[in-house]
Design a protein around this nucleic acid. Structure first.
Lengths: 321, 321
DNA sequence: ACGGTGCTTTGCAACGTTGAACGAAGCAAA
DNA sequence: TTTGCTTCGTTCAACGTTGCAAAGCACCGT
């Protein structure tokens, strides 16, 4: 029998006699034949591969996002290649410029440090979806969250529970990336609405947003402002570090200092005390991102789209109502 | 100029006049030409893709292992495809049988629930490396750790600090998978050496090894044996859950109950109290696994190899010396 | 001027697959 | 028996790349 007939059977094409079909199937089983994906991809001009470029898969937030993307991609018949940029500018540039060898059909990119102008100068024509606030203005499809709203929600919760000296942990010196700028905006908005003056000494910058930076930043904060009574940390990891520092310095959480984070990573539920946080729906973000990408893969060439995923406050022990 | 000349330039072949080389380079830059990976792969018969099948990328241990594998693969010029089995038997079967379409050059597999016999019946000829104790006897290349040694080290540390009622958290009912069996073996060995009789009520089974199971298991443990003075948890997540449960039930850690975990995930350093644990070198595991795979890809067809990665005790607050 | 030598460039084929077009049967109706 | 139609199977070509071998081209010595 001809190769093409086998192809027809494998692809469930019509116009194959049932008898022939069965015969081919039997031989396929016997030989454990599997179509060579490469040949197929070359013929069809698509690989079904999608690259995910994320700062890392280690930190809980990106890990959980990666997990949801892997799951969602699978459901859509796509396969995910994982790359880590380590938040390194050069690595992010490489991702933005496109891999030197063309292999993937699409890209999901979570940029941290690359300037928007560079993103928008992108020459690579592989469809790309940017995830996060940092791609603002890049002229690419993007899934984002309302970080100003998040900052507002968190800060308001602390103010509503009677706190008045609310620190912001996780600011960046110099030009703030959009994600930071937005969370600060929300923080200020909530303070203003409550009539609480902004105290610059309560705005603490950190080099990154990992546990150790929350820890260090909080120790520095307490040295300056020993009377702080609440911390809004820009993400959960900073918050964990903050709790650790506060505890070491003899502050009780939440009695002396309340702490709110952002992300609702799994650990937030099991930490001691459990962490009040603003939850982001990572499954929704994954769904939206791959949805946008799938439209492009299907040939959609409309102007770049922007979609916003939802968030909600989860009240736990570290900052009760 | 001919297509082949371009190919020669792209691949830095000798015998291309510098002038011609420059001319081709210029055009490549101008057109932003990138070789099509699929065509190249078809020609060369290899894709440079390696599949990683891991229970999930969310839990810290697998996440950190995935991260190291991504990094190491990159260094070796390989690209990692990530699949999650969710510790589901059916999904693990699919991985073991091989993907229905051939696309990857190799497989790194962390099996949890699939029986060894099924693994060894594997028909797929794609080179595979198994990571972990659970692949014992599968007749495949494997990177493992000395889990009996780990159980011994952890238990001994607790006994050395004067504890006598040491619980084992994370047993499995019914036939124990190798990883559990080995950690139990080490636990018993240390107890025997210290002359402490084994108390079956201190052996606590959990459905999985996640925080919630450590939490539930520890509550059950305290109901049965309120006088327990130490917990050896089979991994860090169980230990975090245990600490949480102990704290809620009024036990101080480590004063009343000491806790030791296994893995040394990043969180262990920042938890309150910080966690004493047996550290596994994930970078080493990744290096060894891809090293074995690379040998197979290079044509090595010697009998299956077994290599063992190292471990060491890290003493922190939850179980001081 | 001719063949030889060594460097440079090109043509051909093949990797494994599948869409398109073509050919070969089978069958019913004329 | 021939014609026309349907159903099934095959051949051809192409996807983009690169190893191989042959061809082109200077330049040299005789």
């Amino acid at each position: 029998m001809s190769i093409k007939t086998v192809s027809n059977v494998v692809n469930d094409h019509p116009h194959v006699r049932p008898e022939m079909r069965a015969r081919v199937r039997a031989v396929i089983d016997q030989l454990d034949y599997r179509p060579n994906g490469i040949g197929r991809q070359l013929r069809q001009g698509r690989s079904g591969l999608v690259a995910l470029a994320v700062p890392n898969v280690t930190s809980p937030y990106y890990g959980e996002l990666t997990s949801e993307l892997v799951r969602t991609a699978r459901e859509r018949g796509l396969t995910l290649i994982v790359e880590q940029t380590d938040a390194d500018l050069e690595r992010e540039r490489e991702v933005s410029d496109g891999f030197p060898v063309r292999m993937v059909d699409g890209l999901v990119f979570v940029p941290l440090t690359i300037p928007v102008e560079e993103l928008s100068r992108r020459r690579d024509t592989t469809p790309a979806v940017v995830v996060g606030e940092n791609g603002e203005g890049a002229g690419l499809d993007r899934v984002t969250i309302d970080s100003a709203g998040i900052g507002d929600t968190a800060t308001r919760h602390l103010l509503d529970s009677g706190r008045r000296r609310v620190a912001f942990l996780g600011d960046k010196g110099g030009g703030r990336p959009p994600v930071v700028a937005q969370r600060v905006t929300g923080y200020r908005r909530a303070l203003r609405r409550a009539g609480v003056p902004l105290d610059p000494a309560l705005m603490r910058a950190t080099p990154e947003w990992e546990r150790v930076h929350g820890y260090d930043g909080t120790r520095a904060l307490l040295a300056d402002r020993p009377d702080v009574d609440a911390v809004f940390a820009a993400n959960d990891l900073l918050a964990f570090g903050a709790v650790r520092a506060l505890t070491e310095l003899g502050r009780r959480v939440p009695e002396d200092v309340a702490v709110v984070g952002v992300d609702d990573v799994e650990e937030a539920r099991y930490a001691t005390p459990s962490l009040t946080t603003v939850a982001l729906d990572r499954a929704e973000i994954a769904r939206l991102a791959l949805g946008l990408l799938a439209e492009r893969l299907a040939g959609d060439d409309s102007p770049p789209k922007l979609v916003t995923a939802s968030h909600h406050l989860v009240v736990r022990e570290s900052a009760p109502a």
